[in-house]
Design a protein around this nucleic acid. Sequence first.
DNA 1: ATAGGGTTAG
Length: 689
Amino acid sequence: MFKSKTQKILSSKYATVCYSSAPSIAEANTHHHQVVLEQTPISQFSHYFDPRFYLPQLIKCKNLYQVKQVHAQITTNGFLENQIVANKLLYIYCMHKSLDDSYALFCGFSEKNAVSWSVMVGGYAKAGDFMNCFRTFKEYLRSGVRPDTYTLPFVIRVCRDTMDLQMGRLIHSVVYKCGLLLDDFVVAALVDMYSKCKVIGDAKQLFDGMPKRDVVTWTVMIGACTECGDPTEALVLFDQMREEGVVPDKVAVVNVVNACAKIGAMHKAKLVHEYIVKNKFSFDVILGTVMVDMYAKCGSVDVAREVFDGLREKNVITWSAMIAAYGYHGQGNKAVDMFPMMLRTGILPNKITFVSLLYACSHSGLVEEGKQLFNSMQKEYGVKPDIKHFTCMVDLLGRAGKIDDSLKLIEDMAVEKDEGLWGALLGACRIHGRVELAEMAAKSLIELQPENAGHYVLLSNIYAKAGKWKDMAKIRELMSHQKLKKVPGWTWIEVDNKIHRFSVGDHTHPLLKEIYEKLKYLLKELEISGYVPDTNFVLHDVDEELKLGNLFSHSEKLAIAFGLISTPEQSIIRIMKNLRVCGDCHTFCKFVSQVTSRVIIVRDANRFHHFKEGACSCKDYCHNGLVEEGKQLFNSMQKEYGVKPDIKHFSCMVDLLDRAGKIDESLKLKEEMAVEKDQGLWGGITWSM
DNA sequence: ATAGGGTTAG
């Protein structure tokens, strides 16, 4: 029996190829690895002649050598002819990352069915060998075997990972021709691919075309909405999913938490948290991490910390999320303190941990801490600084007035410079009134991104502040010539579990009249307490009156006015903005928090601002500073209290004025100074208030 | 016999 079978197989062309490419038992046995095939008693010898015997044997293999041993057995006993055994072997080679062995085996197959093709295409995809994956897929299409719902998702995901929308659309057409547009696996992959390529419309269309979808397909669509900037829609879909009777699992919930984090809606966040507790989803690392992130991004860094402390398992991502949270809430010290705590638990920092740390330092003015971390990151932790780390350092040094240090850093770095880097330098130059350098940085920005209107506005504002009107006009002309448009600004506020969105001069809200009335009333109140609208923050190509009107109806002001009339007294007002909050609105918030005794928490594109009793947690770090207050104090100190200003007081004033862009006033002060100028005055002082 | 969706920054 043994003999006759072998001979029969050896006589076929297919078996001969396989036999010659497979290792012999003797060859496989020369390796010093555990032998899988045990000495089998004669009574059980027939197992060798049952193809089903080889499937568990293959699964049991711990390494490639064992696979080859079983391969040899299979070949000798003639079971490569069995397609189930052969495909399993093919799959096992892929699992052990030996694509060459897989492919050699695959080529020898006399017949390739859909499973064989799928395993081979999937093997290349998982190994990241996209070229061979596509090549094999093309051969598959040519072979005449109909592609199945197993293979297509593999190639679609390769399109997603390589962001190859063109190829993705091509495969979409193949899917269409095969009539597979109702399959969850295929459609989920296509939706995912379209969303990563930022064409959400195509994704939604596909999704809507299905009569029923499973939880994974729903989850992919929910994630797609968040990914493409519509987290509100993501939450709507989550409700729809449940209405249709699909039960959410943990991954679905993670996506919902993520959407909440993006929206920044605290009430929604709490509802989602309740839902998670009620449905007994346990907090694994990932769910725990997104929860920490969500609470922080919804404005409560303290609740984020509570969740963080309650987590059983934390990884480097969890720690980085918490560090970053302290950073954008302006609590740099706490962020820095977390670092040694993390190290003590045995977790090593990665690139992002350091970005979060340095970012926290720069936003809290922790210059020395930042420098130390930056210096140690490669030396002590083997993390090589990339452009993001350099940008944080430029920002940190620049804001602290050490612009020349940051310039030196830029000159010395061996990394290609990007827009973020020039943006950081530009920001520092604006604060400290370094017009020429700002001009250079802004020009680099425009060169890198000529389509970004924001850069032109910045440069034009720099010229305006420096009184270089001709240059300003030139930039304006350049802008209008290219028909550049600014990104529209939006502000969101959550009231009664509903999210309301405002734009500049919004006239769509049902409570429009009340909002504007409240705003008018508020402005009167604010002006009594010393608020002066700062039209500097409006584009200079409109006349003064229009500027005021414009300023008056900034989206954040509308949202705050709405918040004031529609939420209980004393309650916290939380708003979110897609751009950075403008300087005038920042001042406005401070006054509102004082006049109304409300806490206002603003999340802008960059960070959080907590306004309380007339002050902001950012300590005006990226804004004008308490210029008026400072001036008043400075003027009164000698007159009213008989304290003569010395060099330190003058330095502070010069710094304050410089930061506010009041260069002329600062120059005047320098000239008027009777005291001797020291280095601190000209070098700018270190920010450590 | 082959298959899917999840976390941190910018």
